[in-house]
């Protein structure tokens, strides 16, 4: 069995993605700036994923609380459930689950949209209409994804914690004020800030990978489906890799 050709294609793909990313930075900082299209994309991208992100965040908070409860009771630290859950949500689950949902929803839709624009020559049509399609399509969507995911994650964290509060209240009574007080008491800056910073990278990854897959979509409607599909797969993998890097970098910087 010869694995070499496959590995080669894989490496070529990584190289092309790196080139595409470099082009993003070159084009993003040079005029003309597509501000109105950027705002429109921010709205579309944020609005499209809001309900899905809210729902999954709520369920994650609730379920996590209920799943943790037996062990916490067993060790006699039932009172620490809010602290435990909030660390888990803010540091890891909120950003990663939201980013994965975002990849599924937005990464695929960007991949499919740009892919179909490529195969029906709409991208070429933009170019002959005095528009740089890379700026108009890729830069705006990638920036919008980068800016909107952090907002969604903050919302998701809040909704998740509310789910967790309800989860606690299924078994015992805890006022919302007390729950919030416990959460705040147990959260440190080094929990919240690195987690927040990494969401920008996750958002960027979803945007750039979706655009990359769509922009270089191959001929035919089959190619569009493949673009959407591989955008989600690749973006999800990149999110995990970034998460791994983020935890290492945080350890280095925040030497506690």
């Amino acid at each position: 069995m010869n694995l070499f050709p496959k590995n080669r294609a894989f490496l070529a793909e990584i190289g092309n993605l790196a080139r595409f990313t470099a082009r993003f930075f070159r084009e993003a900082f040079r005029p003309r700036y597509e501000i109105s299209e950027l705002i429109r994309q921010c709205f579309i991208i944020g609005y499209k994923s809001l309900s899905l992100v809210g729902l999954t965040a709520f369920i994650m908070g609730l379920v996590l609380t209920m799943q943790l409860r037996p062990s916490m009771v067993h060790y006699g630290v039932e009172a620490k459930i809010p602290a435990m859950v909030c660390i888990a949500i803010i540091r890891e689950i909120g950003p990663v689950i939201t980013a994965l949902i975002f990849a599924g929803k937005i990464g695929s839709s960007i991949g499919a949209e740009l892919g179909s624009m490529r195969v029906t020559e709409q991208i070429d049509a933009m170019e002959v209409s005095g528009t740089n399609p890379f700026k108009y399509l890729v830069v705006t969507r990638t920036l919008a994804a980068t800016l909107m995911l952090p907002v969604l994650v903050v919302l998701a964290d809040a909704i998740s914690l509310y789910g967790s509060y309800l989860g606690v209240n299924i078994y015992s009574v805890l006022s919302l004020r007390l729950f919030i007080a416990q959460v705040i008491e147990n959260l440190a800056y080094y929990d919240a800030i690195p987690a927040f910073v990494k969401t920008f990278f996750f958002g960027f990854a979803v945007g750039i990978v979706g655009c990359f897959k769509g922009y270089y979509s191959t001929k035919g409607t089959e190619g569009v489906g493949r673009s959407a599909n591989s955008a989600v797969v690749m973006a999800s993998v990149v999110i995990f890799i970034l998460d791994l890097l983020a935890v290492q970098v945080t350890e280095l910087i925040w030497d506690y």
């Binding site: 029906t120 709409q122 049509a125 933009m126 209409s129």
Partner: peptide, 30 residues
């Protein structure tokens, strides 16, 4: 390109825009 028109084989109409917006696009963008 503002002086050379191009009719694409697959028409290349922007399918997220109305006909009017499609027609206005090159005017505004140039």
């Amino acid at each position: 390109r503002a002086r050379v028109g191009f009719l694409f084989q697959s028409n290349a109409l922007y399918d997220s825009m109305t006909v009017r917006e499609n027609l206005e696009f090159p005017l505004r963008r140039h």
